[in-house]
Simulated scan of single mutants.
Amino acid sequence: MPALLTNYYNLSELQVGLTYLAIGVGVALGGFLNGKFLDINYRRTAGEVGFTINKISGDDMRSFPIDEARTRFANVLILLDFFILVSYGWACATKAPIEVLLVLQFLLGFLQTCIVQTFNTLLVDVFAANASTASAAGNVTRCALSAGGVAIVQPLIDSLRYGYVFTIIGAMTGISGLGAAILIRLKGMKWRRQRQI
C-alpha cells in the first residue's frame, strides 16, 4: 500500500497512514459481527440436529457437527473475498479513485477477518483440550505464510503489475480456501472421531 499510494496517488506519509483506517475499521467490524454470526450458526445447527446446548458444563463435540456449524457460510466469505481481492488489484492497476481503493480495503479487512476468525474458532472447538496451542499454531502458520507472501508480492507486482498479481493471489487463496472448507464440511467429523479412537 505505501508504494502504491505514494507513487500512484502522490499521498504524503501522513495521508498513507490515514488510509489504513479503512481496513482497520473493516477488521474491527468483521471481528465483532462474525462472532455474532458464529453464535447464530452454532445455535441453528444445534436446532437442526436436535442437539441440546449445555451452557453450564459445555457441549460434547464428539456428537455435534461443529465443522458444519462453523463453516456454514465460509464458502460465501471465501468467494466474496476472491472477487473483492481481484477487484482491488484491477482498481490499483487502473488507478481508480482513491475512494474505490478505500472501500475495497474496508471490505477486504472485513471479509478476511471473518474468514480467519471462523477457522480459528473451529480450531479451538476441535482442539478444546489444547485450545491455546491450537490457536497459537494457527496464528504462527498464518503469520509465516503472510511473511512469505509479503516478501514475494512486490517483485511480482514489479514484473506482472497489480491486476494480474491480485488475480493470481485471489485464485490461489480462493481455490485452496474453498477446497479446504468443502473438505472440512465433508470429512471433519469423521477425522475428529478417528483422532479420538
Rank of each mutant, 00 (worst) to 15 (best):
F37H: 12
E13R: 09
Q196D: 12
V49I: 07
F83D: 07
N10I: 05
Y88P: 01
A151N: 10
G31N: 06
A129H: 12
L80T: 04
G174A: 11
L38T: 03
Q154F: 07
Y164K: 07
F127V: 06
G31Q: 04
A93E: 11
I168E: 01
V76H: 05
L156E: 03
A180Q: 06
N120A: 11
I152M: 08
E68T: 13
S87Y: 02
L101A: 00
Y162K: 06
M172V: 15
A96W: 00
R70M: 15
A69F: 07
I84R: 00
I175H: 10
I84P: 01
L183G: 10
V16C: 06
I23Q: 02
R192D: 08
A28D: 05
L122Y: 05
M61I: 15
F127Q: 05
F110R: 01
F64A: 08
G26Q: 00
G109V: 00
S159A: 14
Q15S: 11
N41Q: 08
L160K: 08
V16S: 05
F119Y: 15
I56T: 14
A134D: 11
A181S: 15
T94Y: 10
Y20D: 03
L111D: 02
G50I: 03
I115M: 04
Q117R: 03
S63M: 12
A96G: 05
F51I: 05
T94V: 11
A131V: 09
Y8L: 14
D60F: 03
E13N: 14
A22C: 02
F110C: 03
V124P: 03
P65F: 05
Q112K: 01
C143P: 00
A93L: 05
I168L: 14
A28W: 08
Q112H: 06
K36D: 03
F119P: 01
A28L: 14
F64W: 12
M61V: 15
L4E: 02
A22E: 01
P2V: 15
L107I: 13
N41E: 07
N7M: 15
V126T: 13
F106S: 01
I175Y: 07
N10C: 05
S63H: 15
L178G: 10
P2A: 14
R44F: 06
Y88A: 08
G58L: 07
R185E: 10
A129I: 10
L14N: 03
L14S: 13
E68S: 14
I115Y: 02
A128Q: 11
I197N: 07
T52H: 10
L4A: 12
A22H: 01
K95Y: 04
T121F: 06
T133R: 14
R70S: 09
P97Y: 02
L33V: 10
L5W: 02
G177I: 07
E99I: 05
N10S: 14
G30K: 01
I152T: 11
T167G: 12
I84E: 02
N139S: 14
A147D: 10
I98G: 01
W90P: 02
D125F: 07
L156A: 15
Y8C: 06
K190M: 10
K95V: 08
V86I: 13
A181N: 13
Y88D: 01
R43S: 09
